[in-house]
Design a protein around this nucleic acid. Structure first.
Lengths: 202, 202
DNA sequence: CTAAAAATGAACTGTTCAGTTCAATTAATA
DNA sequence: TATTAATTGAACTGAACAGTTCATTTTTAG
């Protein structure tokens, strides 16, 4: 088909661009370097993406969609509330504590807010927004099942999310700490689940 | 004395620079504009600060030190744990939800991490780090008084901090929401305190 | 096989700004 | 008053880099 060469190039560009953005930051990533890393030449870049910002947005959407899918497996609704919450907390803390790509893309989006608000908006939508919407749905399910008692599932969902960042996300965001060990992430997850259940368990 | 003119100019530069950085972001703030806003000429800027980065660090330190002092009043130790926690939660949520300067300085630090790690480090130290250290001290005090039961005060302190961001800090950081109403901030504070006390109240 | 779409290579443009230089002025010190 | 430090104004330098142009070559489709 006609689109195949173009589609393939596009995928290669996205993969290469993600590596360069994560490694160098937004400003540090020159379009020349992105082209080199993607094994492509500069006019080709501009054939696929209007400008550097558009390319960046595409990278964020691509990366976050993959990440989110890995956190909420389809069989989560079969588990008990307590088990499911601990499982989700484990995966959230692992992402907050150990994923370098999401971390750096997040930095770029936040830092680029003024010059480039749609980057932030894209990150917010495909990250925290859809993430907490998924948790919100689950909490409502557990309330219907009588496992939880919760007046405001949306707020509770966001509380769980924030509790999973404790001591790991901010220090990484500010560069004070590097990758967090699996053990420590697991511990934060257990503590997050404990605090959450202390408040909302039936 | 000799330092008086220089000291005064330095303060004017800091105030002007803060306004420009907050209004325009780091890259958007040209040194020409900072000079203009501070009522000073460019070589004077470079007489006081080695470069743009140094100036920025000085602004962050100045702004955060003021903010932190406003959150923890000296008489907080006289209050009951429950009252003090709600009071602190109120002030934290007000900062997270309504302070534009801290918000934008934070964005700049996070976004500038790669090119300029000491900005992030300065923010982390004078913001979250010292902030949670203050809460940590208070929690230990309340444990000694028998008002709280808590194995890990440091973790608990960070949990309280995160709970006060729920639904307000991230949306502002990503530009999804503007300034949050006092009512809503107050509500988040109450919920944060409730979840915290559900877990740690004696 | 051929026509259209896409990719290549390499050089070029234009802008934006941080940081500098210097000669002339102003203010504080002793 | 004489000396020294700081400030002013205005012009300049130098580098980095996004985005473009174009003539040539490769790939795919019909």
């Amino acid at each position: 088909m006609n689109a195949s060469r173009k589609t393939k190039k596009r995928a290669e560009i996205l993969a290469g661009a993600q590596r360069v953005f994560v490694r160098e930051g937004f400003d540090g990533a020159s379009m020349d370097e992105v082209a080199r890393e993607a094994g492509v030449v500069k006019p080709t870049l501009y054939n696929h993406f209007r400008d550097k910002n558009s390319l960046y947005i595409a990278v964020v959407e691509y990366a976050l969609t993959k990440t989110r899918a890995a956190i909420f497996p389809p069989d989560i609704r079969d588990m008990s509330a307590a088990d499911a919450i601990e499982k989700i907390a484990k995966r959230l803390t692992a992402m907050f504590g150990r994923d370098d790509d999401v971390l750096e893309l997040c930095r770029i989006c936040i830092g680029g807010y003024q010059r480039f608000p749609s980057g932030s908006a894209t990150f917010m939508l495909h990250g925290p927004q859809r993430g907490s919407a998924e948790i919100n749905d689950l909490i409502q399910l557990w309330c219907e099942r009588g496992e939880l008692v919760c007046e405001d599932p949306h707020l509770a969902a966001q509380q769980l999310g924030e509790l999973c960042k404790v001591g790991i996300w901010d220090p990484r965001l500010y560069g004070e700490r590097g990758k967090i060990s699996e053990e420590e992430c697991g511990h934060i997850a257990v503590e997050a689940a404990a605090t959450f259940m202390a408040r909302y368990s039936a």
